[in-house]
Design a protein around this nucleic acid. Structure first.
Lengths: 235, 235
DNA sequence: ATTAACTTGCTGTGCAGCAAGCAAGTGGAG
DNA sequence: CTCCACTTGCTTGCTGCACAGCAAGTTAAT
């Protein structure tokens, strides 16, 4: 009965308890969303009473803000680390890009809470957090983009091209995770298969490097009138 | 005061009222989500009393199901129309693909409710609708993919490649819409600028057709060690 | 003993879902 | 044609539940 998490005979450690509440909240907010999650539930999962989250974080909205903050911190650190790593290598661009896709995919796969929270943020109509400031979520992307721009001397047009490319890269890694159970599964792929993440990554790297033209002309070039990919996706 | 929508002296038309409730619900569910939306609010927006949505649809969950159903119907129709259109043309594959991207992007831009509802569905933990069946959302993607597969005689490997490609196509068109105010804006792009949708579409078509290699080697090929795109996105 | 770290009790609010009512038609008998 | 019984379309009243936030208590550390 000395297990931490229940009862009155628990060691009193504010910092640790706070962290536990924060982790529980992150999980529940990510899995169920802001208003499907009650402070009581957070407390239960953290092994404290129902009022403890309120005690530490003041309000539900503040708790949510704190969760976002801690997530962003992790992302910022990861971005910076990856950037430094890619700067200190002399691998060819293709390899670096492949590595970046792998790193980013892996990060997203290992932080599903972050992905879900960001999705929910993107859907939020501005209110929910308190309506105050939203800049924290912009920081990571801006930092990444500015790193690109600073690295080379890009003109304005190139800046836009790089931005589009960055968006596309993120889209290709991000979207399949969010819609793994909907669209991806509907296409007949099995996102839970052991080989899936790797095959997906290969496809993304291939697509980004070479586009689809090769495979189009190699395989289906002269078969019918329409390209295989375009046929069903139209409208 | 003969205006429909308020008071007792309104023409009694069950079908029309039902439709109005359905549209109001679609908008509110898409904009605010399931549990941020009350039946009373739906009623208010539809110009009826707070119990009318319940009268027509039985329960909140049933109303939500009906909204999804009507959305999917529209998508199915659009997919079928686009497919038939692309089958009855003899344009080169590149043009057809460009047209498909344009068509799909336009459809998504013109149906933001659908996009938001699907995003929310993807985030739903399975419950919320009633926990019953989820297949309706799979239908559209399966239909699209099967169209591709039927069109050509694809082996299993090609089927997977086509599936990946379909997912990527959707990702590239879909993701920037959902994250227009978050990531896209963070990159410095302005999603509300008049030229943005077009430039985004061009980028997507270019990327899918040729990949990024050309632009890499043409512009930044020998400048530094790292590829411009990979630098900041790592991890 | 005093303060920090919690817990339990309470209150007000918002909402979904019934149930009862009312008003606008609809059909049939005289 | 007209009166009336009956149905359909909708509204208002009510009840029970869930939850956020406060306030007052209680126990552990220093």
């Amino acid at each position: 009965m000395t297990e931490p998490g229940q009862g009155a005979n628990r060691e009193r450690n504010a910092e640790l308890t706070r962290e536990r509440v924060l982790l529980a909240a992150e999980r529940l907010f990510a899995e169920q969303g802001f208003d499907q999650t009650s402070l009581a539930e957070v407390g239960r999962l953290a092994g404290v009473s129902r009022a403890t989250p309120g005690y530490f974080f003041g309000s539900k909205a503040e708790l949510y803000r704190s969760v976002l903050e801690s997530c962003f911190q992790r992302v910022r650190d990861a971005v910076r680390a990856g950037r430094e790593r890619s700067q200190s290598t002399d691998a060819p661009p293709e390899a670096i890009l492949a590595g970046a896709v792998a790193d980013y995919s892996t990060f997203l796969e290992q932080h599903p809470h972050f992905v879900r929270l960001m999705e929910r943020e993107a859907l939020a109509p501005s209110t929910g957090t308190g309506g105050g400031d939203i800049p924290p979520r912009l920081a990571a992307g801006q930092e990444a983009l500015e790193a690109i721009v600073d690295e080379l001397g890009l003109t304005q047009e190139d800046r836009d091209a790089a931005a589009h490319l960055l968006v596309s890269l993120v889209a290709l890694c991000w979207f399949p995770l969010v819609h793994a159970t909907t669209l991806v599964r509907a296409t007949g792929l099995d996102p839970s298969a052991p080989g899936y993440p790797e095959s997906r990554r290969r496809h993304v790297v291939d697509l980004i490097l070479h586009g689809v033209r090769d495979s189009l002309h190699t395989r289906a070039g002269g078969s019918r009138t329409a390209s295989p990919v375009t046929t069903g996706v139209c409208s």
